[in-house]
Amino acid sequence: MPSMNLDGIDRKILAALQADGRLSNVELAEHVGLSPSPCLRRVRLLEEAGIIDRYVALVDQRSVGLPVSVFISIKLERQQEEDLDRFEAEVSAYPEVLECYLMTGTQDYLLRVVVADLAAYERFLKTRLTRVENVAAIESSFALKQVKYTNVLPLELQTP
């Protein structure tokens, strides 16, 4: 994957696509002050460099019947590389796990899980998470309210 230095136009392109990934190339070019051909060339370079990873539709979890977000701290019995790899592979296969982070501190992993209700979480816990080898402790915290959620990176905070 080629590396790339981002200039102001690249940052404008990324900001515009983060706000609306369905912009046509003509709309995007107009928005960032380029003609369509150079704009498309820049977008393709951003894609090839892996800076634009993919295009997705963001779905409201409440609207599809998955209103419960659970943050789960996991402590492993052992933290050898193969143990970490095995844990990561297993939890990555669970569709309920939207995010999984290897952490510093007293816990090894932090997961964000979405489910329909407490009964669904109990099923997830009993049939999946407690059966993962090498898990020493599980601590769950339920989100009462989502105060902020964004997937838009603060590109304006970075210097060109």
Rank of each mutant, 00 (worst) to 15 (best):
residue 2 P to M: 15
residue 2 P to H: 12
residue 2 P to N: 14
residue 3 S to A: 07
residue 4 M to R: 14
residue 4 M to N: 03
residue 6 L to F: 04
residue 7 D to I: 11
residue 9 I to D: 01
residue 11 R to V: 06
residue 14 L to W: 05
residue 14 L to Q: 02
residue 15 A to K: 09
residue 15 A to Q: 14
residue 16 A to R: 09
residue 17 L to R: 08
residue 17 L to V: 12
residue 18 Q to P: 00
residue 18 Q to R: 04
residue 22 R to G: 12
residue 24 S to L: 03
residue 26 V to W: 02
residue 26 V to L: 14
residue 27 E to P: 00
residue 28 L to I: 00
residue 28 L to N: 03
residue 29 A to L: 05
residue 29 A to S: 05
residue 33 G to A: 07
residue 34 L to H: 08
residue 38 P to L: 04
residue 38 P to F: 08
residue 39 C to F: 06
residue 40 L to P: 00
residue 41 R to V: 14
residue 41 R to D: 09
residue 41 R to A: 15
residue 41 R to Q: 10
residue 41 R to H: 03
residue 42 R to M: 01
residue 42 R to Q: 04
residue 42 R to A: 04
residue 45 L to V: 02
residue 46 L to I: 06
residue 46 L to F: 08
residue 50 G to D: 01
residue 51 I to H: 09
residue 51 I to Y: 10
residue 52 I to F: 05
residue 53 D to W: 13
residue 54 R to K: 10
residue 56 V to L: 15
residue 56 V to A: 15
residue 56 V to G: 01
residue 57 A to G: 05
residue 59 V to M: 01
residue 60 D to T: 11
residue 60 D to M: 07
residue 60 D to K: 10
residue 61 Q to H: 15
residue 63 S to M: 12
residue 63 S to F: 06
residue 64 V to T: 11
residue 67 P to C: 12
residue 68 V to F: 02
residue 70 V to Y: 11
residue 70 V to T: 14
residue 70 V to S: 14
residue 71 F to C: 04
residue 72 I to P: 06
residue 73 S to M: 15
residue 73 S to V: 07
residue 74 I to D: 06
residue 77 E to C: 03
residue 77 E to G: 06
residue 79 Q to M: 08
residue 81 E to H: 08
residue 82 E to K: 12
residue 82 E to F: 05
residue 84 L to C: 09
residue 86 R to K: 13
residue 87 F to K: 12
residue 90 E to M: 11
residue 91 V to D: 03
residue 92 S to R: 13
residue 94 Y to D: 04
residue 95 P to N: 13
residue 96 E to N: 14
residue 98 L to F: 13
residue 98 L to K: 13
residue 100 C to V: 15
residue 101 Y to S: 02
residue 102 L to M: 11
residue 105 G to Y: 03
residue 105 G to Q: 05
residue 108 D to W: 07
residue 110 L to P: 01
residue 112 R to C: 11
residue 112 R to D: 03
residue 113 V to W: 12
residue 114 V to C: 04
residue 116 A to F: 12
residue 117 D to T: 08
residue 118 L to D: 12
residue 118 L to R: 14
residue 119 A to D: 15
residue 120 A to Q: 09
residue 120 A to S: 15
residue 122 E to M: 08
residue 123 R to V: 02
residue 125 L to R: 14
residue 126 K to I: 06
residue 126 K to P: 04
residue 127 T to E: 10
residue 127 T to P: 00
residue 130 T to L: 12
residue 130 T to W: 01
residue 132 V to N: 08
residue 133 E to T: 10
residue 134 N to V: 03
residue 136 A to Y: 14
residue 136 A to P: 06
residue 137 A to P: 02
residue 137 A to G: 05
residue 137 A to K: 15
residue 137 A to N: 15
residue 139 E to M: 11
residue 140 S to E: 12
residue 141 S to H: 13
residue 141 S to T: 12
residue 143 A to M: 13
residue 144 L to E: 11
residue 146 Q to G: 03
residue 147 V to L: 11
residue 148 K to P: 00
residue 148 K to T: 00
residue 148 K to N: 00
residue 149 Y to R: 14
residue 150 T to Q: 04
residue 150 T to S: 15
residue 153 L to E: 11
residue 155 L to I: 13
residue 155 L to M: 06
residue 156 E to A: 09
residue 156 E to W: 07
residue 156 E to I: 07
residue 157 L to M: 05
residue 158 Q to A: 14
residue 159 T to N: 10
residue 159 T to P: 07
residue 159 T to M: 01
residue 160 P to Q: 04
residue 160 P to K: 01
